[in-house]
Amino acid sequence: MRGTHLGEFEELVLLAVAALNDNAYAVVVKSEIEEKADRKVNISAIHTALYRLEEKGFLESSVGGATKTRGGKSKRFFKVTAYGFKSLREAQSLRQSFWNVIPQLSTQK
């Protein structure tokens, strides 16, 4: 279906949000990805991805939790929706289906 396709980076962000459970907002997502994937990401890219994913219905969000370090500004917490989980699983199974074929091919060599 058009518009629901998951990009590589988007998938990564979606996974990170899922992994972070209830504490997923942009800064944490960024550090999570940087840690796990060992790559530098600019915060603006995270913003882009998060708001896009929300628009596509993979994520939902709520506002809360202003802290002093943030200059009193609130955070936006993201949560993966059911539809988001479904898509993640679909993506995973799609990959799995490929992986299931790959060893057979390689042994026939």
Partner: peptide, 16 residues
């Protein structure tokens, strides 16, 4: 609409 959160995020990073 999203300025507050984004600025907060950037500020937090700055503090870190």
């Amino acid at each position: 609409e999203i300025y507050d959160e984004v600025e907060g995020d950037l500020a937090e990073l700055f503090q870190e």
